[in-house]
Design a protein around this nucleic acid. Sequence first.
DNA 1: ATAGCTGCAAACGGTTTGCCTCACA
DNA 2: TGTGAGGCAAACCGTTTGCAGCTAT
Lengths: 127, 127
Amino acid sequence: MTPQRQLVLDAVRDLGHATPEQICTQVQRSAPAVNITTIYRTLDLMERIGLLRHTHLGHGAPSYSEEKHQHVHVVCHSCGAVSEAPLDLLDGVVGRLRSDSGFELDVTHLALTGTCHTCQSTPPEDE
Amino acid sequence: MTPQRQLVLDAVRDLGHATPEQICTQVQRSAPAVNITTIYRTLDLMERIGLLRHTHLGHGAPSYSEEKHQHVHVVCHSCGAVSEAPLDLLDGVVGRLRSDSGFELDVTHLALTGTCHTCQSTPPEDE
DNA sequence: ATAGCTGCAAACGGTTTGCCTCACA
DNA sequence: TGTGAGGCAAACCGTTTGCAGCTAT
C-alpha cells in the first residue's frame, strides 16, 4: 500500500461516490503531483481485489464507492439527481431472472433511470 | 426529411439496435460521403421528436433503436451478451418507486447487468 | 539486480463544436 | 435572400498505453 493508494482510498471514503476525476481533484489537494493515471490504475486494482466497486450512473464517468456501500441507484435523466434505494427493491426481478434463465443480476452496478417527481412538471431535457 | 436522414432511419430499422458508429458504416455502404457528425445530429433530432430512442448497454457507445421497439435489456458483463426481457419484468419496481417517491421509471433506457448462466462457471472478466 | 509503482506524454474511442458551403423555400 | 442541413477539421472528455525513472527490496 503506497502513499498514493492510501490517498485514493481515503478520497473515495471521504467522497462516498465519486468519478475518477473528482477523486483525482480530492487527492491532489494533499498531493498535487499525483497523476490521474495513478488514480485509474489504483481504482482498477482496488476493484479487482474487492475493496471498491463502480456504478454507471448512465451518462458520463462511472462512480466509485466502497464495496460495502451497496444500494440501488435511481437517477433522474432530467435533473441528474441520484437517489439510493434499498437493495431489496429488485429482489423480485432478481428471482425471476434467476429462475427463468439462470441470470445472476448485479443490482448495484447499474442505475435505474427515469424522471423524478419534481421534473415531471418541468419540460424534459433528456439525458 | 433529407436523403441522409432517411438513410439513417433505414439503417436503424435494418440493424434493430446499433451504435452511431455501426449506423454510420451501414449508411456509408450506400452513401460513402455521409459524415458521422450527420449521424449524431440526426439521431439526436429523431430522438427529440420521438422516432428513436437510445439505451445504455453499460460499457461503450449507446445503442439506438426505434421508439416502438421497447423492452428491458439484460447484459452479461462477463461475455457482453445482451438479451431482451419483457417490459413487465419491472412492473413491480415501477409501481413501488411511483408510490414511494413519485419517480417515473424508464425501463427501456437502462440495461440490467449481471452474469449470465454460461459465464457463472467461467472466471469473470468484469466489464 | 529486480520487480513494481509512478509520472508523463501520447494515443485512443466516442462525441461535440465551429465554421464555411450549399441547396432550397 | 435567408434559414437550415451537411461536410470537414479540430476540440473535447474520459480512459488507456508505452516508456523511462525511481524505490524498495
